[in-house]
Amino acid sequence: MAVIDVKHLSRFYQVHQKEPGLGGSIRSLFHRKYYDVKAVNDVSFEIGEGELVGFIGPNGAGKTTTLKTLSGLLYPTKGEVSVLGYTPWKRQPEFQKQFALVMGQKNQLWWDLPAIESFILNKEIYEVPKMQYEQTLEELSALLEVKDLLKIQVRKLSLGERMKMELIAALIHSPKVLFLDEPTIGLDVVAQKKMRDFIRSYNLKYKSTIILTSHYMDDVKELCKRIIIIDKGKKLFDGQLEEIVRKYADHKLLSVVLEKELDRRHVEGLTKLGGVKEYNYPKLILQVPRENSNKVASRLLQSYPVADLNIEESQLEDIIREVFTGKDVA
């Protein structure tokens, strides 16, 4: 049975529009024009136990709204949702004890107290047995390397350290289902990588089911086998990451390091081989149709001063962009 089962989920918001400026503000006091925003519009998917699924889409695509509905914060306008067999917005304690929602831009820690105090409070709220609490805290703080920061006021921690503490606070009751909304936002590259490593090992170790949203394609690429792409409230793609790469990346990139600068004849010849994406001596990147890549590569090796050559898949960012810009989506 699927751990998360979403059928025809829709959530509409009513918002009012304000004309710009003070005049508009005054007018909006008396007369407001309301219209529906379809934040999520007829989205269905199923997620099995232990899956780590990436949820991607631009700002306002409906990712967060979906996660909020799955967490029971929002009532859906239409559709059915079941998480671990529960209806989230009934907010039964038995359900709440089994999942966690981490929002990269919201914190639950007590700002003026050391993080450990928030952990103790969560231990009581979730009724975690003492032994289990101590063991979990030990494991998590070791994995995230924050053992010596537990007794420091949260306000004194750096953003990266705080985010780790937020994760511990969210995981102290060992949730079976985890919703991570932009967990790496604002973090530096090193901290992002640490966070990713942690999420991966957590998923493997505890077999927890995880939905992850992120703007950083690296997060998705490294963590998720399966991705769901949504935009403007509609699901555009749901399947294996490899599949989307195969389907949409009809080009490969030939990345070449040259031995010496190309003469005119060579440069002219290049355009026949493929699109020049970048030429900045000694680096040359060619974009070629997938089926031609081997042929072009051997031509390059034969008649060009090549020091090194690599055949690479297109960047995931480029592929996703193509999906969004409305290439036919099956």
């Binding site: 967490s71 029971g72 907010r91 709440q96 999942f99 929002m103 919201k106 969560n122 709220i125 979730y126």
Partner: peptide
Amino acid sequence: SGDLSNYLVKPL
């Protein structure tokens, strides 16, 4: 501000 969400997801 939406901070209420922090409480609503918990058995509290």
